[in-house]
């Protein structure tokens, strides 16, 4: 008798599940690629850590713009985290219509491991699919008590450096490469220089935001290596009376690319909206928002307007490291040069 009761409840459960599944299927088939004016759709933008504030503002502007042009209500959901972790989530099935990550390498991985977009994704949009760029600068305590002016000062005895772990953080890889570029162009042995630099690192956080917290709120370290936009955000949030930005003589040109995740967007029927969203990032309106959030705009007229905010410096692109696959294999892969700094093989 008890068995029958259990059987009955199982049947009921199965029926409910089936009903729910048809419901979900029904929803997704309704949003065809030809979304009609008056309808609404949702995009998921999977991004890296320090773009939280930027995309909040960009998304609102895009939603207004898109409604005006097409009559379709678009809502954009954001997901943020370490760039590598975000890429892995997409590979493992996070339904991203659009990705905007810290490195091209992470999007390459999505193309290579999950075939969710073509391998030549980076040619689809202007400027290597990177609507804005950033660079790596130094944040020091007010008055710059350790007199830190350039990369060379970071290896001095007793200087405590905060930077995240390049194994887990995209930004940290840029930090590392910027220091490498400085050593190369200043007649120092890059490996020795980086060994000396990382010997001065007090805490290796997992991501850029974690390092900012360690430096700003825990008061640990003399200098924080971080994204230019993150440095400006720290000034804004925690006060320009406590910190100042030091722009080194040379740094890296960080292209932070964006891409539509074709397979997912096709399935969701959101491809048109996703493409319009990414193209919107290149408009003067979005470029202006980006500049205000500390990202270097590509648009020349917007860049001219913010010229005093973004100090000129020598910028080295990832190409001078042979592109991401090569840089990754040589420096950051298991047993690579970074591991060797810590005595690993």
């Amino acid at each position: 008798m008890a068995f029958h009761r259990i059987l009955r409840s199982f049947t009921a459960l199965a029926l409910i599940t089936a009903a729910l599944l048809t419901q979900i299927a029904g929803c997704s088939s309704k949003d065809g690629d030809t979304a009609q004016p008056g309808t609404s759709l949702t995009l998921l933008n999977v991004s890296y850590d320090p773009t939280r504030e930027l995309y909040k503002e960009v998304n609102a502007a895009f939603a207004d713009d898109y409604r005006r042009k097409t009559g379709i209500d678009v809502r954009i959901e954001q997901s943020h985290g370490g760039s590598g972790k975000q890429a892995r989530s997409v590979i493992d099935g996070l339904q991203a219509d659009v990705v905007s990550l810290a490195l091209g390498y992470d999007i390459d991985q999505i193309a290579a491991k999950a075939s969710l977009l073509p391998a030549d994704w980076q040619c689809r949009l202007p400027c290597n699919s990177s609507p804005f760029t950033s660079t790596i600068v130094m944040l020091v305590r007010k008055g710059n008590p350790r007199a830190i002016r350039d990369w060379g000062d970071l290896t001095r005895q007793g200087v405590s450096v905060i930077t995240p772990n390049p194994k887990t953080s995209g930004g940290a890889r840029w930090n590392y490469l910027a220091a490498w570029a400085f050593a190369q162009r200043n007649g120092r042995d890059p490996r020795e220089f980086l060994a000396a630099l990382y010997a001065n690192v007090a805490v290796l956080d997992l991501g850029a935001r974690g390092s900012t917290t360690t430096f700003v709120q825990r008061n640990i370290g003399d200098v924080l290596l971080t994204w230019e936009n993150e440095a400006y955000l720290a000034l804004k949030e925690f006060g320009a009376d406590r910190f100042e930005v030091v722009v080194p003589s040379i740094s890296v040109l960080c292209e932070t690319p964006v891409a539509v995740v074709d397979t997912v967007a096709m399935r969701h029927g959101t491809r048109n909206a996703a493409e319009a969203y990414l193209q919107f990032l290149y408009t003067p309106q979005a470029q202006d928002i980006a500049a205000r959030h500390g990202f270097r705009p590509r648009d020349a007229s917007v860049a001219a307007r913010y010229a005093d905010k973004f100090a000129p410096l020598v910028l080295v692109g990832i190409d001078s490291f042979g592109g991401w696959p090569q840089a990754q294999a040589r420096h950051f892969a298991q047993g690579g040069l970074f591991d060797q700094l810590y005595g690993g093989r």
Partner: peptide, 27 residues
């Protein structure tokens, strides 16, 4: 732990963090 450990390889890096870093590299 990851918030209070310095996460320095060989010194204050815990095994679960090594697992995480391997995952980050798609290993």
């Amino acid at each position: 732990v990851v918030f209070i450990a310095g996460n320095m390889p060989g010194q204050t890096e815990i095994a679960p963090l090594v697992i995480m870093t391997r995952l980050e590299q798609f290993d």
